[in-house]
Computed example of a mutant assay.
Amino acid sequence: MGSFACRRLGDVSARGRRGYRYVGSAELKAAVRPGGGGCRIGSAVEFGAWIAGRSAEELAEPFTFVVGVDGALRLAPRRSEHVACAGGGAVLSAGEIGFVREADWWVVGEVSNQSTGYCPDVGSWPDVARALDDVGLVGPAGFTHEVVFRRCPGCQEHNIVREDDFVCVFCGGELPEAWNVDPGV
């Protein structure tokens, strides 16, 4: 399954539980249909039915995912916006997820917190692990690709921190080490 450690995801601690509001484009959020969103996956049976309906082209790349504040996994095609997948609401985590077939079931091959609309902290992993465990999916021990998001205190722009360089790419200001993207949380 890859070079990362695999384990059952149910043994995750009670960390996490921070909610994330959408911090992206107001126009994009306004375009989200009320009641819309990604496909809610609450069980292995629901996941099995959903994955059976995916084409080979869809399965070749990761999907958009969110973990809603109800703790449920929601999935949508990769080019879907996270805010649309979440139906416009807050989430416990968001990112991209890929599945691979192993023996007679699917496993998580890759998962990231890459969502520039919600900018979830890497500490949101336990909520993802719980949602995957609820569906009966085995996968990595954490995000296979961690994205570090920060808001610049100077210019207020959202940044992706690369190579531990906590400097704003927009104004050159110093970025905080602690997650601060949504000051209202």
Rank of each mutant, 00 (worst) to 15 (best):
V32C: 00
A49T: 15
V147G: 06
D182Y: 09
E81A: 15
E81D: 13
T116I: 03
G142T: 13
H82D: 00
C6N: 09
V100L: 14
E57T: 15
G42L: 08
A30E: 12
S124H: 02
L73V: 15
R78M: 08
F143T: 07
R162G: 02
V181T: 09
R150W: 05
A49M: 06
T64I: 01
R162Q: 12
Y20C: 03
C155Q: 11
C119K: 01
V23Y: 04
N113W: 06
C6S: 10
M1V: 10
D133L: 04
I160G: 04
P140E: 06
A103Q: 15
G37W: 09
A86M: 01
D182A: 09
V107A: 15
C152R: 04
C85G: 02
V32G: 04
P153R: 10
L92E: 08
V83W: 00
L92H: 03
G53D: 14
S115F: 00
E46G: 01
P153N: 04
V185P: 00
G36N: 10
V138I: 06
V181L: 05
G173W: 08
L28H: 08
P176A: 11
R40A: 14
H82T: 06
F149A: 06
V111K: 05
F65Y: 15
V128C: 12
A72T: 12
G10I: 09
S25T: 02
R21T: 00
A94I: 03
G19R: 13
V148T: 10
C152S: 01
V181C: 12
G68N: 00
Q156Y: 08
A131W: 07
S3K: 02
V148D: 00
E81T: 12
S13E: 10
V23T: 11
S80P: 00
G184K: 11
G173D: 13
W50K: 03
W179S: 02
V83F: 03
S3F: 06
I160S: 12
R21A: 14
S3I: 10
E27T: 09
A56S: 14
S93K: 07
D70N: 10
S124G: 05
C85R: 00
W105H: 13
P77A: 15
D121V: 01
D70E: 14
E81F: 14
C39V: 13
E177A: 08
D121I: 00
S25E: 14
I160L: 14
I160H: 05
V83Y: 01
V45H: 13
S93E: 06
F65G: 07
T116D: 07
S55H: 10
G172M: 00
P34R: 10
E57P: 03
V12T: 05
P183R: 11
E81H: 12
H158R: 04
A5H: 12
V69H: 06
G48E: 12
V135Y: 07
G154D: 11
V138Y: 02
V167E: 12
G19M: 04
V138A: 07
G38Y: 01
W105D: 14
G136E: 05
